[in-house]
Design a binder for these strands. Structure first.
Lengths: 160, 160
DNA sequence: AATTATTATATGGTTAACCTAACTTAATTT
DNA sequence: AAATTAAGTTAGGTTAACCATATAATAATT
């Protein structure tokens, strides 16, 4: 059965918190997800019943192996998407926020292509020229390889 | 106030249906969104109260100006995302499906960059070489510009 | 025009998420 | 150790979406 995006959000946050502390406390999860503690408790019980976390009253939450596996998949998707958006010059804050939205329901094929893209750019020997061109295009609206661009270059030359 | 993703889905579907027929019928909307007619009626009432559609009992639904404006924005985002994913070689079916997911909550900056990217690729005079390289990379896992790739090329040459 | 079939609506019920407010347990301070 | 503060829990309530089923209106067929 498919997990809801909210359930995935909780798992991911718990993974992040338990990476530093031993167990995730209700309050920390609540703050991270911008919900009230009572909502966290409710979800904690649900995830516990699903065997994804171990939740002990008054003693916080930890991931089971099953839960950790899922959380890592979600986190990995998040990182892929974020890296991807940053390559496209989306500001990091926004890339992070939007990765939270996209990390849940996209098809594996799509995620795979984003991952390919990130790897492709990273494996280039230098900062790719086409990305420089993309930046120019974002700023000026003109593709450096277009005839428009060459016309402009000619114009500038003439003036000199 | 922000519309829910579901409300946006309904508006977009109604826009698509009314593009061909005069008014959108309950049954058609239900089929398009994979829900029961009673669910459509419920949302129809809600959207009507918000002033986004004109819903007349037993006579289908049409968009108000306000609703049409929103629907067009969503549809435009959808098309941008779909075009974008297809550039990255995500199969059209899947690109369409995932565009439905992404079209709702992404930040304007992100959408804008996707749009820039699509325009960038489209305004290139020829099919961009870097995209050819990306395709190669997807198939082989090797970046054509990498030293690895040159090594391989050398090896092949030697064998001849 | 009457019957049948299709489409639409109303009603009542479910579920996932959330909330507030009251209460309980645990931790900290005096 | 008692009192105070902080954190966690429970209970009860809300909302957006959905559904099934029963009924009503419209359309199509005979």
């Amino acid at each position: 059965m498919q997990l809801s995006r909210k359930a995935e959000d909780y798992l991911e946050v718990i993974l992040n918190i338990t990476a530093t502390k031993g167990r995730a406390r209700i309050k920390d999860i609540a703050r991270a997800l911008n919900v009230r503690p009572s909502s966290v408790v409710e979800m904690a019980n649900r995830l516990n019943d699903m065997g994804l976390v171990e939740y002990r009253k008054y003693d916080g939450i930890s991931l089971t192996e099953k839960g950790k596996t899922i959380a890592k998949v979600v986190k990995d998707r998040h990182e892929t998407i974020q890296a991807f958006l940053e390559i496209l010059k989306v500001p990091p804050r926004i890339a992070d926020k939007d990765a939270c939205i996209m990390e849940h329901e996209l098809e594996p094929e799509t995620i795979e292509q984003l991952r390919n893209f990130v790897r492709f750019v990273r494996s280039a020997p230098d900062y790719p020229q086409w990305l420089q061109h993309f930046e120019t295009f974002c700023k000026t609206g003109v593709h450096p390889c277009s005839s428009d661009s060459r016309d402009i270059a000619l114009l500038v030359k003439k003036k000199e």
